[in-house]
Design a binder for these strands. Structure first.
Length: 801
RNA sequence: GCCGGUGUGAUGGAAUUGGUAGACGUAGUGGACUCAAAAUCCACCGCUGGCGACAGCGUGCCGGUUCGAGUCCGGCCACCGGCACCA
């Protein structure tokens, strides 16, 4: 009989679907396990070979858990709002909803082709009104609690997408999606106060089972730093507030710098003697894109504000004030005290402008470079701080400033509030109206979902407004508050909105009363294991943690963190070791692989390819090797011998070891070595034919990895029920160990030979066995044995003199 | 510049966390089967020397700790990812 993968894969996919073997049951008594993968964006290109890596991994984990008796929730959905679909729609004059529907159908076929055990009754689609109803509802709640606000501020504007971007979406000064130039633009935007959660987003990481690099990257992104805020008096009467992490160096502050956008510059217009020069600098700074700004980072530029001076609160000296674009408007207070002796940037600026550099921490050579070390230095030229360590000086000066009312301790974060509006059509409408009398007014919950209207033209307007802006009938409305004239918000939500809570909807996807029932949320929360890409660490993963914490605070969800465990997979590279891309021509289409080798082979290969967390290049030859392995299993089933009892004496030990190894490896995401262990078992079965019990165990172990072939052989062998519903086999630790051990014999730490000894034998027996070996005896001739080291069941090391 | 990570045969990668380096797969070589090829099955497969038993070397480089180091410590080099004038 031939292994017709095409036929059997289709056959079992239909049977599984019909029998609903992957249905999750809310409220079941069995322990629950919620395994989650990042739902795909249904692009026009269809599934990429990168997708099956995390999907197959979690499919294996959840199948394994199911076989262990867990009530498993393993859902799938589509994150379908977004720019590529909209752009495709514009180009081809098709409604994005139609494009989305088509793409989702294609993705669904491909996912089913790979035999994933998703609960297809729980599919979510973020573009459906039944879904975005609740995305909008969460927004209203955020607004109600003061966490959504409208603000006019400089935002990142992608010149190609004609759309604002969140900070997280700007990579190296260009748009994360289209790589076009990003410029700063003043715009009125909806903002979400993620900064309010900064500390909790850091603190709560401690209790989570996330891979370490994810935690580190999130912490770095949030960027907490502790210091002080200090007020400097000025000759204009206003105070300049600065933030510093080095209040200990206050005596060395010889000038001040404000960002070019700082409000005091405008306030002082009348007093400034060189206003033209200042204005010119401000304009030049505003014109620079983020990219240019970082490019030009080497040389410090700036202009002194002539006519106003600041006063150093500890030295009493008048010091000059500059504006320079090395000071960012959006961090801290937008102004700094410059301590050129002990800050690299201030040092460079001081050198460029010939400003005095004073040493206040001894230990370096400030003639050559700024001395920034906080560990070793001693305070000098600092009045009452002299002789103190930096740490002590920090505490002392902060206390002093607080007592005098000049400053206070202060924590700052790099994280900024989340720019939440997009000037685009294909997104969730923001359920707010602007009333001339009442200002911004939220829609009442009863009016949700606010449907996305049909428009004729999806393009952004020339003045950078959303296409919805042209929909006069839709835009013009009445104020829910006073009934007067009002206009709807025409911006839509960003791509990240729908994905910030989708894992909750899976728990109760058809609920039309609330985002999910209390019962379902209590039963399934939190997600037990979430696997996804590193690229989402500071985007989706952070955003969804923020939303979840908010929902926890208002009593909607029962846990303060959404995901208990987070892991991440490496990329699949092309055969040339380069990132797969159409232009390189190294793209592998999963459909081709499935047609040629079958879904089981693809699944197996993609897990065997290498360390799950690392990038790995594709190898068609190695795919063939996996197909060969399945062929060998297929042939094996015809070559087994009878005997329904237990395992045979020849295989027992290896079978027990393999059960242990495969189970442990699945839990630790070491799928490659789990497969290697099964290969070894099959190799042993080729040496000595397996019996029925051994075949049964092999098929059970194989089932999570290659479910179709396992199921078919299961049926052929006449085992009861379905392979995918079989119980995971038990192993007996006692049966995994040998009666005898082959241990290493070393002389002076160098391996000379091996000897066989009884397992767990005492040291004397091991030494006796080693020293009676012919070869070792020869080496010992004429030498004196000065020391022996014995490691039980491993080795004997003889030290000779 | 700062923060993470990686470096092992021709090749993808293993190695119980300080204890027999190279499991498993790919490629390669030899053999069986075949008129032949493919497929399949069996064997070999780190480098150097030797007919050989065997000896020496070997986990990016240099040093150290240890009876013993791919694994730990110090100093380099290379590559990958993230952040980047964050005061």
């Amino acid at each position: 009989m031939k292994y017709e993968f095409g036929r059997i894969e289709k056959k079992w996919q239909e049977i599984w679907e019909q029998k609903k073997v992957y249905a999750a049951v809310t409220g079941s008594d069995r322990p629950k396990f919620y395994g989650l993968i990042e739902f795909p964006y249904p692009s026009g290109e269809g599934l990429h070979v990168g997708h099956p890596r995390p999907y197959t991994a979690m499919d294996i984990v959840t199948r394994y858990k199911r076989m262990q008796g867990y009530n498993v929730l393993f859902p799938i959905g589509f994150d379908a709002f977004g720019l590529p679909t909209e752009n495709y729609a514009i180009k081809n004059k098709i409604h994005p909803a139609v494009v989305t529907k088509r793409n989702i159908a294609r993705f669904t076929d491909q996912l089913k082709m790979l035999g994933y055990g998703f609960d297809w009754d729980r599919v979510v689609d973020t573009t459906q009104p039944e879904y975005y109803h609740w995305t909008q509802w969460i927004f209203l709640k955020l607004y109600e609690k003061g966490l959504a606000y409208k603000a006019t501020m400089p935002v990142n504007w992608c010149t190609s997408c004609k759309c604002v971007l969140a900070n997280e979406e700007v990579v190296n000064g260009v748009c994360e999606r289209c790589h076009s130039e990003v410029v700063r633009k003043e715009k009125s935007q909806w903002m979400l106060k993620i900064t309010e959660y900064a500390q909790r987003l850091i603190d709560d990481l401690d209790g989570l089972d996330y891979i370490e690099r994810v935690k580190i990257q999130q912490k770095n992104w949030i960027g907490r730093s502790v210091g002080a805020e200090i007020d400097f008096d000025t000759t204009a009467g206003d105070k300049i507030k600065v933030f510093t992490t080095r209040p200990d160096t206050l005596f060395g502050a010889t000038y001040m710098v404000m960002s070019p956008e700082h409000a005091l510059v405008a306030a002082w217009a009348d007093r400034l003697e060189n206003l033209d020069e200042i204005r010119a600098y401000q304009e030049a700074a505003a014109r620079k894109s983020d990219f240019e700004r970082t490019e030009l980072a080497k040389d410090k530029t700036g202009v002194e504000l002539k006519g106003v001076r600041a006063v150093n609160p500890v030295t009493g000296e008048e010091i000059p004030i500059f504006i320079s674009d090395y000071v960012l408007a959006t961090y801290g207070t937008g102004a700094i005290m410059a301590v050129p002796g002990h800050d690299t940037r201030d040092w460079e600026f001081a050198r460029a402008f010939g400003l005095p550099i004073v040493e206040v921490v001894a230990g370096g050579d400030i003639e050559k470079e700024a001395f920034t070390d906080c560990e070793t230095g001693t305070m000098v030229n600092s009045g009452f701080l002299d002789g103190m360590s930096v740490e002590t000086a920090k505490k002392t000066i902060t206390q002093w400033l607080t007592e005098k009312g000049i400053g206070t301790e202060k924590v700052n974060y790099k994280l900024r509030d989340w720019v939440f509006s997009r000037q685009r059509y294909w997104g969730e409408p923001i359920p707010m109206v602007y009333c001339d009398k009442c200002g911004w007014v939220p829609l009442p919950e009863s009016e949700l979902p606010l449907l996305l209207p049909e428009v004729e033209n999806y393009e952004t307007t020339d003045n950078g407004e959303s296409p919805l802006d042209r929909m006069t009938d839709w835009v013009e409305t009445t104020c829910p508050h006073c009934g007067g004239h009002a206009r709807r918000e025409t911006d839509t939500m960003p791509q990240w909105a729908g994905s910030s809570w989708y894992f909750l909807r899976y728990m109760d996807p058809h609920n039309d009363k609330e985002l999910a029932s209390k019962e379902a949320l209590e039963y399934w929360s939190p997600v037990d294991w979430y696997n996804g890409g590193m690229e989402h660490t500071t985007l989706h993963l952070l955003y969804s943690r923020f939303w979840h914490k908010f929902l926890y605070d208002i009593g909607v969800v029962p846990t303060c963190e959404p995901y208990k465990k987070r892991t991440s997979h490496g990329m699949i590279l092309g055969e040339d070791g380069q990132k797969m891309s159409k232009s390189r021509g190294n793209v592998i289409n999963p459909n081709d692989v499935v047609n040629e080798f079958g879904a089981d082979t693809l699944r197996l290969y993609i897990m065997f390819i290498g360390d799950f967390e690392k990038a790995a290049p594709w190898s068609t030859n190695a795919v063939k090797g996996c197909k060969r392995f399945l062929d060998r299993i297929w042939n094996l089933a015809e070559n087994r011998i009878g005997g329904d009892g237990g395992y045979s004496a020849v295989h027992e030990k290896l079978v027990h070891r393999t059960i242990r190894k495969v189970g442990e490896d699945i839990e630790n995401m070491k799928f490659n070595t789990a497969i290697a262990a099964m290969m070894s078992l099959v190799n042993a079965f080729y040496e000595t034919k397996p019996n029925r019990a051994e075949i049964r165990t092999l098929l059970t172990l194989l089932s999570p990895f290659a479910p179709h072939i396992a199921e078919e052989l299961w049926e052929i062998q006449g085992f009861e029920g379905l392979a995918c519903q079989a119980q995971w086999p038990e192993y007996d630790e006692a049966k995994t160990v040998d009666a005898d051990r082959e241990i290493a014999v070393q002389v002076g730490g160098k391996l000379k030979t091996t000897v066989t000894v009884p397992a767990d034998c005492d040291d004397a027996t091991a030494i006796a066995a080693a020293t009676s070996d012919e070869k070792i005896r020869r080496l010992m001739e004429g030498k004196q044995l000065v020391r022996t080291i014995v490691v039980k069941n491993k080795l004997v090391n003889l030290i000779l003199k």
